[in-house]
Design a protein around this nucleic acid. Structure first.
Lengths: 225, 225
DNA sequence: CATAAAATATGATATTTATCATGTTTTAAG
DNA sequence: CTTAAAACATGATAAATATCATATTTTATG
């Protein structure tokens, strides 16, 4: 099993502030897991009891609403820590996490890492910063949901995926989502999401082939009203 | 000037975890302020550089969207700490804070309290918990915005105001908001908010007299579809 | 590779919400 | 108390989005 001390992934999240000794101890109690596309990592109401360090892959954090639709709140990717809230609260998970492609993750039990949160001020400050950042992002999404059209939100989602997660060699978005996922990010009906994507195609803003989407006119997308 | 050590308001927020000595020091550098209804506490883009402890009153945290509408993201009330994010990030404020009625607040400079965040683990854990809680709430609002109708969101807002902030002796909601504020919480046009409130009146769910709103049928409001 | 199931696509229509217009009521200032 | 401004209210209409129906394409699986 690989060691946390040597893992480069940790550079991208709060674990980077743990000391050598702390990392060695955590390395000894972590479990590595492979998670297949579509698999549930945890669900709303689950007791999570630890954090997942994402070594590879992407998952969605979503919440089921009363009308049966899943609202995607955040995408969590390689390098991120998943389930930081569980370290801090005694509550059950508020969101579900589902793999969008095959993933490699390490699970660190809460019992092992919780003490570092109070002993290592750098680490707790990092977690605080991360949470503050998530909070700002969430506030921004609230504003977008409330004030922007489906067209705008979908255009912004495509821009976000392009700028945050990049493209494959063939220039298509490296994050591959179903039309339903797009609808669940934007907060609209699947048919509406499909319709808007079709419009974008007709306008030459994107091109598609199956689930693959290529951004053809980034500036145009940014200007969508 | 009153002293933090003896202030009961701090019991309701993270400041309760500061030691006697820390409180005495902070008491010496805080500034008490009276803020009039409608006054701006800070604006998007401002450098906040400290936290406000709300001794009395209510304010709204909102963000201006591109179309010129203000989206209210959160209400901050007596007992809460305002501006916790500023302690953690170097960024400027992401939201504006505006008093909804006359307020009494104490301002604690970041420079004085930041060191406590790394020295006092109880305090930083409290701030973390608070932030985790804000994050959960924000995620829930995203889901509501995306999946619920204006009617439902407005009904839920009324229930929230009733259950979180209570009523005056005459049974009207103690938080008094303009129709525009309601629209800006729900994320709809002012006319739409007014129309829905009128419907609720006709259905006997609420009654109004000017800005005062009385919940007449709480269960009915909770069942609004 | 055949076939069923799932995902994508598009039209027709209904519903929700926004916008514009205009009148009424409430509030604040002198 | 008067008066102007702001807030509230409501109708008419337009625009955005959801829903339902149905066809086509893609994907998964034996």
């Amino acid at each position: 099993m690989s060691k946390c001390e040597q893992c480069i992934v940790k550079q991208f999240n709060s674990l980077k502030s743990l000391t050598k000794e702390e990392l060695v101890r955590i390395s000894g109690c972590k479990t590595s897991k492979t998670i297949k596309k579509g698999e549930v990592i945890f669900e709303e109401g689950d007791i999570v009891n630890g954090v997942f360090c994402i070594k590879d892959g992407i998952c969605k954090l979503s919440k089921l609403s009363a009308n049966g639709k899943d609202q995607i709140v955040k995408l969590v990717v390689k390098g991120d820590l998943l389930g930081q809230r569980s370290l801090v609260t005694e509550e059950t998970a508020n969101l579900s996490a589902v793999a969008l492609n095959d993933m490699e993750v390490c699970f660190i039990p809460k019992s092992e890492i919780i003490s570092d949160l109070s002993k290592n001020a750098n680490f707790s400050m990092d977690v605080l910063k991360d949470m503050a950042n998530d909070l700002r992002q969430a506030d921004d999404i609230i504003v977008n949901m409330a004030q922007k059209s489906v067209r705008q939100r979908l255009a912004e989602t495509l821009v976000y995926l392009y700028e945050s997660f990049g493209t494959n060699p063939d220039k298509t978005l490296s994050v591959i989502l179903s039309r339903e996922d797009y609808a669940n990010i934007v907060g609209t009906a699947v048919e509406s999401a499909i319709r808007v994507l079709s419009q974008f195609k007709k306008q030459g803003l994107i091109s598609t082939s199956g689930k693959k989407i290529k951004i053809e006119n980034l500036e145009g997308l940014k200007r969508v009203e």
